[in-house]
Design a protein around this nucleic acid. Structure first.
Length: 225
DNA sequence: GACCAGGCACATC
DNA sequence: GATGTGCATGGT
């Protein structure tokens, strides 16, 4: 009998196959996407990234050199454009100042230091930091997002108000510490969430439906952190 | 037209 | 430490 997190993974993988998540031609593009997708539908982020490419703005130097009104205008399609212009610049300033603008150099940092540094950048919270660490720097940290919390809480596995770090720790405790697995797992959660577990769920065709109300909860009560 | 989307910082209690 | 609010566009 598989543990719940292994079972979820098998069911989602059987249903969707490998997702190939995260899309992007470079680590920097992935980092930019991670900031732009904050509380925003991915389709809107894709438009913005296409414009950034067309305008030759997809590099730390170009973003830092770009005047604020122009950058904001380019970021419009992904919403919160003033906020995101500032956050993007903060990240680029950090990358330029500490790593000569090189994602490759950033990725050489040990995981815990890397995470701490990213969390110190304005506009980078836990999820964005972990997106960058896992998908751009290829280091094993499990990415938690709204879908992760929603799916597990709807399945009675965790308290809906479980804190980010507690939920991350839960996955990292129950899964093999493996970059490819973490990438795939999060991608599958996003797919499942988008298709079946939005605000109004669509459980009929959800690959995880067979696991509803089965097994002991992994962690029912926890303190938010 | 209402509701929602893969967060985060900041103010307030 | 918990809870509320602003940020903005585009799809359903």
């Amino acid at each position: 009998m598989k543990k719940p997190l292994q079972r979820y993974y098998s069911l989602m993988m059987d249903h969707f196959g490998p997702t190939g998540w995260w899309p992007g031609d470079s680590p920097f593009e992935i980092a930019v996407g991670a900031i732009l997708t904050q509380n925003t539908a991915w389709a809107n982020v894709e438009k913005t990234i296409a414009i950034l490419k067309r305008e030759r703005l997809l590099s730390p130097g170009a973003i830092l050199a770009c005047r604020r009104p122009r950058l904001e205008s380019v970021l419009r399609p992904s919403g919160f454009f003033r906020v995101k212009a500032r956050r993007l610049r903060s990240f680029c300033a950090f990358l330029a100042a500490e790593y000569g603008g090189s994602m490759k150099r950033l990725a050489r940092r040990p995981l815990t230091d890397l995470r701490e540094e990213l969390l110190g950048v304005h506009g980078i919270g836990p999820e964005t930091a972990d997106d960058i660490i896992l998908y751009a720097c290829e280091k094993p940290v499990f990415v938690v997002d709204a879908y992760t919390r929603r799916i597990l809480s709807r399945h009675g596995q965790v308290d809906p108000k479980i804190g980010y770090e507690d939920l991350r720790a839960l996955f990292e405790k129950h899964l093999e510490r493996d970059v490819a697995l973490y990438k795939d797992y999060h991608g599958l959660i996003v797919w499942t969430g988008k298709n079946y577990c939005r605000a109004t769920p669509n459980c009929e065709k959800c690959p995880l439906a067979p696991t509803l109300r089965r097994g002991q909860p992994l962690l029912v009560q926890t303190r938010a952190k």
